[in-house]
């Protein structure tokens, strides 16, 4: 039991930050996989699929993340599945990430000129080969800046699952506040830890955006 804010408290918060990082990482990996599928289907899929995905994206982008968290939290138990908060939290964050990252990545794919597809087509590459060897490597380089930028959003978004009781950094701050009654110290430290995680990524993101050369640096 921690009674006043001190080194022990900081340790407690850093453990919480570990969960924030883990949750962010999981969210990015899972959400990223679906985002890639969404981005590809939305540029190349058959029309009904494209429309369905676009509609889904519109709906999710018009709903607060917190509500999505609540919906997946209660929705899972509605269909009779009882999971630990980690799963509900991860699921909702992944859905949110899929939708935004999918949109960003679609933009990157569409930013590659049509002539690149055609040139690869004329060389008899299959659709998949065109994507794999010509389009995606170029889209990947453009996407780096925005993607790292969005990772900052992911880290910050994970704070929302504190509200369904998942003990990550923000929730750890709340708990610590209940023990120490020193909210100013606690939340300032929490903010500082978030900043320490996010700022380097923001910085890197801006750097990567500035460097839009498609070919590798050498």
């Amino acid at each position: 039991m921690i009674r006043s804010f001190g080194w022990e408290s900081v340790e407690f918060l850093i453990r919480g930050a570990g969960w924030t990082l883990l949750l962010s990482f999981m969210t990015f990996v899972i959400g990223g996989c679906f985002a890639l599928i969404f981005a590809l289907l939305r540029t190349l899929g058959p029309k009904p699929v494209r429309l369905a995905i676009a509609g889904f994206i519109q709906l999710v982008q018009a709903t607060p993340l917190l509500i999505i968290v609540f919906l997946s939290f209660y929705g899972l138990s509605f269909v009779g599945l009882h999971f630990p908060p980690m799963v509900g939290a991860g699921l909702s964050l992944a859905v949110y990430t899929t939708v935004f990252l999918g949109d960003i990545w679609r933009g990157c794919i569409e930013a590659i000129p049509r002539q690149q597809w055609e040139a690869a087509d004329a060389l008899a590459l299959t659709r998949m080969q065109q994507l794999r060897y010509v389009i995606l490597p170029q889209a990947f380089k453009i996407s780096l800046g925005p993607t790292v930028g969005f990772m900052v959003q992911i880290v910050k978004n994970t704070s929302v699952v504190a509200l369904i009781g998942f003990v990550e950094l923000t929730r750890a701050g709340q708990l610590l506040n209940n023990m120490t009654f020193q909210p100013f110290h606690v939340f300032l430290t929490v903010a500082a830890i978030y900043f320490a995680i996010c700022y380097p990524m923001s910085f890197l993101s801006e750097r990567l955006k500035g460097n839009r050369h498609v070919r590798p640096a050498h």
Partner: peptide, 23 residues
């Protein structure tokens, strides 16, 4: 700008609502 863009809104809210009374 960087301070507010690199910390979560929820934490900003807690800091303002719970933290400011401290000062």
């Amino acid at each position: 700008v960087e301070l507010f863009r690199n910390t979560p809104l929820l934490v900003q809210l807690f800091l303002i609502f719970f933290g400011l009374p401290y000062i």
